[in-house]
Design a protein around this nucleic acid. Sequence first.
DNA 1: AGGGTACTTTGACCGAAATCAAATGGAAAC
DNA 2: GTTTCCATTTGATTTCGGTCAAAGTACCCT
Lengths: 247, 247
Amino acid sequence: MTLKAQFDHTNCAECPIRHRAVCAHCEKDELEELESIKYYRSFEAGQTVIWSGDPMNFVGSVVSGIASLTQTMEDGRTQMVGLLLPSDFVGRPGRENAPYDVVATTDLVMCCFRKKPFEELMVTTPHIAQRLLQMTLDELDAAREWMLVLGRKTAREKIASLLSIIARRDASLHSSGTVGPIVFDLPLTREAMADYLGLTLETVSRQISALKKDKVILLESKRHVTIPDMGRLMEEAGDDSDGGFLV
Amino acid sequence: MTLKAQFDHTNCAECPIRHRAVCAHCEKDELEELESIKYYRSFEAGQTVIWSGDPMNFVGSVVSGIASLTQTMEDGRTQMVGLLLPSDFVGRPGRENAPYDVVATTDLVMCCFRKKPFEELMVTTPHIAQRLLQMTLDELDAAREWMLVLGRKTAREKIASLLSIIARRDASLHSSGTVGPIVFDLPLTREAMADYLGLTLETVSRQISALKKDKVILLESKRHVTIPDMGRLMEEAGDDSDGGFLV
DNA sequence: AGGGTACTTTGACCGAAATCAAATGGAAAC
DNA sequence: GTTTCCATTTGATTTCGGTCAAAGTACCCT
């Protein structure tokens, strides 16, 4: 696939940052500059992409798989603070060190750019910073939405919230309509869900069982979820029905 | 005070955005453009600056006082998702509507810029976007640090975390050294602290009493706090002693 | 000084989620 | 087939923080 072929506004799965952060307005030579500092990295499920505090010499985005941002306390308590799905951006232009662990939750492929030249490109190509600002504001909104979940929702509402987020992301990825039942595979273990929700894995399991008993969700297997009525799930999540979630 | 007089790298309390987002690199005519779209707004404690979902036709920053960003569920549960202290930025260039309530926690003065022209200025003045990106990344880090507090810390640790944040912000504002006891007035009611921490006001009160009994903090009055040993407080907060908190 | 109001503290009790513990299920390895 | 390993479920019990209720305190306003 040539550069030119990718340079349109259709979804560019191979290298989302080019599409999302650059394509919309950029010129060909910028694309080539990006191309020259780009490389791919693959990780197996469970591998750590980078440890909190370590120097981080790249920025990039998720091509396939799921990565999580995790904070850990000395005594081992952990809180997931971000869930990175395909096309999500990772990295802090202008920062030396990673502020939290980045862990591959599933097998993972990332598209990376060396940080120094990327930062230089940001200076000469203003709309990259503008696009990154928009993406960061989206992440900030998602983080703050999550603060409400963590601080004020019950265990049942937390589970419903997480399921509705994953369902919505999944549905938008497959560009299926918003009507009818939604079916997807949970990409997270019960423990990972607990880490995201500030719960224990036992509580996660219990609440999933409860939602299943109440027919809010259907489980073919432990990971395969069907949501017969998205509105019902969002009621359970305590969201108003329009729901502006982003992750 | 003339424009020129403000155009240096000393702290510019009157209009922090100019200093923080623009001053470092900008040219005089940009300052004048900013000046022409700038206005001030004052609020009394308790007033709402803007409601979630309402169109927001300005961006700006806090000049004096404290504002809070608050999410509310239909049944009245509320979670504070951000605490805006002097020099903090408010607003989302490129967004139409406010994503959450902004409330004046104390009497508040804001320095605002009309959004449309500010956005236009962002296009012609690239370093504004770059500076805003840095500020937004800081906010994102703070939000994620807060997610750990909300999700995994005990009530006592939550209180200690909040006190250490406020203490640190206060100390840096007064540019006092990092040694010796820290003294400050709590700018928040017990209820506001509870909203920030995902607790009830009774629990906040109890934990403050407990920290006082254990001599982690001293209270001259209900709002006047002395922290004899910052390291001790941060231990109570469950942070490692170096502590990279930002709010 | 008195009285009102808003903020804060304290107490008694309860319940949701954590903890501790054991059993079940399912897939890969032998 | 069966053994092993891991993820998950389920059960029993404990505990932390919430809820409900009542005082206590400080400040403002005539």
